[in-house]
Simulated assay, not measured.
Amino acid sequence: MTILDRRELMTTAVASAGTLLTGAFAPAALAQSFPLPQGFERFPIWPGKAPGAENVHVQEVETLRRPDSGPDDGVFAHIVTPTLTMLRPARPNGAAMLFIPGGGYLRVAIGHEGYSLARRFAQAGYVCFVLLYRLPGDGWAAGPEAPLQDAQRALRLVRSLAPRERFDANRIGVMGFSAGGHLAAWLTSRMAAETYKPIDAADREPIKAALAAYIYPVIQMEGPFAHAGSRTQLLGATPSPERMRAYSLDQDVSAQTPPVFLAHALDDKAVPPENSLSMLAALRAKAIPAECHLFENGGHGFGLVPEPAAPAHWPDLFLSFAKRHGL
């Protein structure tokens, strides 16, 4: 992708983020291409460099998602400094949401599936956090587990922020989109595995969410309905059948998975709706409460695109589901 507008700004992580944790945590300087939208605050999730950076030599960039995008519709590539971007609600409801944008594990659409969703759910009372996570093809020592390291760390940090931000740590939802839906499912539907060495007090928090939502998610890494681009970025060009199955998230669903909301468009040509259907079947097999909405149209990556082009009312369906399950 060509860089359509690059304004080099050096900003310091939000001063209040320094109170996130006890111990040696110190916010790092963040390089930013576009100014943060009004009301948002951003801070790094790791003190110092992210784990396994010894052979990482990429340069983090932010570009516009499309040529006609506004400055809030950016995408990041080659993420070096994983971050959380927070938006506080005017009228808190005592709960929080962690959003994981998509981008095929090649980039992260932080505006389309981050800022816009945070605004929508902050209106409903949630303290909102948007995760900018590392990508598996950039040389991180953890390889395909690098995004999962960031997701686990982010969820723990969000839980640790509950007293300061006045929400209940046991009322946190995780919502992921496309490849971010794969990462959200990886984070919430499998038994939590330790993917990095604990750093500070936040890492004593459990990797646990009250609710999960997978929106037009990449689920399968094998078979005719797999998203080839996400699979290549995550596992390489020629993964073995065993490796593809291991990263297919309709396999090994944990009985401890929280209630799950799924949404997909039937005309999705990029990530077929069979991904959501296979996940729904796996959840039902483990008796996990689940709700799945299949919309006539919307294509892939519909986010909050207005109707009739896409099912823009899906957040209301999610909010109804969330309310029934205490979020």
Rank of each mutant, 00 (worst) to 15 (best):
A285G: 07
L64M: 05
F25Y: 15
G114F: 03
P67G: 10
P198E: 13
L327S: 01
A210S: 12
H57L: 12
Y216P: 03
A13G: 14
T63I: 14
R88W: 08
A141I: 10
R134M: 14
E54D: 13
Q59V: 14
E8H: 08
E242L: 11
A179W: 14
R245K: 15
A285C: 13
T11I: 15
A192Y: 11
A118H: 04
E296R: 03
S230N: 02
L277D: 08
Y216A: 08
P315G: 02
A246E: 01
W186N: 13
H264F: 08
G229E: 01
D268Y: 04
R204V: 07
V108F: 01
V174F: 10
F99P: 03
E165R: 13
G70R: 08
E54Q: 08
L211F: 01
H227A: 12
P272M: 05
L131A: 05
R42D: 10
G299W: 09
N297T: 15
R88Y: 09
N170H: 14
S189F: 15
R119N: 09
S320Y: 15
G74Y: 10
A246Y: 04
R245Q: 14
L280G: 12
F40G: 02
G74C: 06
D73K: 03
S230V: 10
G125Q: 06
F295T: 00
A26S: 12
P27D: 02
P163E: 10
R243P: 00
R107K: 07
F261A: 02
R156I: 13
L106M: 12
N275F: 15
A255M: 04
F129I: 09
W186I: 00
R153M: 13
A96V: 07
G236W: 00
P315S: 03
S254Y: 04
T188M: 08
L131E: 03
P198V: 02
G114T: 07
G39C: 04
A29H: 05
A151K: 09
S33F: 07
F76T: 04
R159C: 02
L106F: 13
M1E: 08
L283M: 04
F99I: 13
